[in-house]
Write a protein that binds this DNA or RNA. Structure first.
Lengths: 251, 251
DNA sequence: CCGACTTTGTGCATGCGTTCACAAGCGGTA
DNA sequence: TACCGCTTGTGAACGCATGCACAAAGTCGG
């Protein structure tokens, strides 16, 4: 669907179909994978690899080759049939689509164990995400530099975020503080938030929140442990669905 | 579909349709949400709330009410029509399905900034996930207790994981070490891994890996920042898809 | 005891994402 | 130049997840 490229279309449409249209059409799931491809490709580039096939790249990224090609097709046709992809070219196009050509100033709120860890990454995972502000409520922390940046009091959040043009806020506070911190970030014009607090944040529609929830991750793993155990039990006993420990399972 | 409960079915099927069948049928996405519902419900229980409707619960969990009801229906029918759900009952059933009635011993590998943070959570987010072993390669760390547990050398990983029946391994090492650590965990019988290292782990089919990748999260946010910026640009100029900075976007 | 009202549980339709399979396109070779 | 083999890009089928809308089932008031 959508406009093909250079297919001899003789309408009045300009030659360049605008990346915006494309970007809007990329499935969320594909965006996440593009970031993974980017990392794998960067690693390859560092090792002097200049060309790669969809098969190789997909294996390194842990996905199916067809899926990889479809994902790449969302951002355009930059491969050469019969040959593969040029690593450099792919890297630069993915970076462009992911918006990594601009710098995204990051603020970390909550300088506890996790906040420390995040701030110390310095220049955050991958390049392009400079941490430019740290906030906490603890008076003992204010002014102390962590990862090269001094900690500010949380009350200064609005002023500083505006001044330093923070585009991404990272919440690493205890749960009770998270919503209030979030509200302040939003009122400071931050439109993207990465939330480590185990809380469901309420935000306006124009703000994007991504959640990293350790408890949820652990519980999903726990579910799989339980499922495996159940399977093992029913296999070892027979396959009628009545496990050895039927009554252990029920409360 | 599947067997209804106590509908007067007079086949030879035993009364209890076995939770195993159910567990296998729960969509992955629903499992993640069940964990969220569980947290919200626990919070409600702590505040003395005893009953809740799907509407209330769904709002607190940030999802659509129909989806919530469907999710809950995967684990059985424990609500009362015209009334809602009993908080305690729901909590205990979700805990059972997620396998939280058993204790899952956790090992953390890589006691850097992040590993420290994880170990210090002590008893990990939510109850039921006791951290029972820590590992690192750094000789300076060996023997030092973090969060109450002494750090062991990584070479002891197999022996200790077997001895302490570790069921979940958490990898918080630098990227180059991750795959090797993963292999050792697997050979120690660990079947569930939570990976914080920005690496695509290769594991056998019977091992479950979940990935928490900060770089990917940041880049997804970056993508949305860029998309918003593009939208804003094209809106402010008109709506023909040709933005003000068309040539800035292209390399 | 009955009728009105509330809320659950779920069949069905819709849409998104994944997978398949193959035509189109390109480099290499004779 | 013409052919051959390889790899991309994508139309189309499939499957899963989401959302809708309503019957079933319960409570409450009279």
């Amino acid at each position: 669907m959508a406009a093909q490229r250079g297919e001899g279309e003789t309408t009045t449409t300009p030659a360049e179909p605008a990346d915006r249209e494309r970007a809007r059409a990329i499935p969320e799931a594909a965006v996440a994978r593009l970031a993974v491809y980017l990392r794998v490709l960067s690693g390859m580039a560092d090792q002097g690899v200049t060309a790669v096939s969809s098969e190789e790249l997909s294996q390194a990224a842990g996905v199916n080759a067809a899926k990889l090609r479809k994902d790449l097709s969302y951002i355009g046709s930059y491969g050469t049939r019969g040959v593969g992809y040029d690593v450099e070219v792919l890297v630069s196009h993915i970076e462009r689509i992911l918006g990594l050509t601009r710098n995204h100033s990051v603020a970390v709120v909550g300088i506890g164990n996790l906040g420390h860890a995040l701030a110390n990454y310095g220049g955050f995972p991958g390049r392009g995400f400079p941490v430019t502000a740290l906030f906490d409520v603890d008076a003992d922390l204010i002014g102390i530099p962590v990862g090269g940046i001094p900690v500010n009091h949380i009350d200064e959040i609005t002023a500083i975020c505006l001044e330093r043009e923070v585009s991404i806020g990272v919440i690493a506070t205890p749960p009770p503080a998270a919503q209030s911190v979030c509200d302040r970030l939003v009122s400071a014009g931050v439109q993207c938030i990465l939330n480590f607090a185990p809380v469901v944040l309420q935000v306006p529609d124009n703000v994007e929140v991504r959640k990293v929830d350790l408890a949820v991750e652990m519980q999903i793993l726990s579910f799989h442990v339980a499922r495996r155990a159940d399977e093992a039990a029913s296999v070892s006993v027979g396959n009628n669905g009545l496990g050895v420990d039927g009554m252990v399972i029920r409360p």
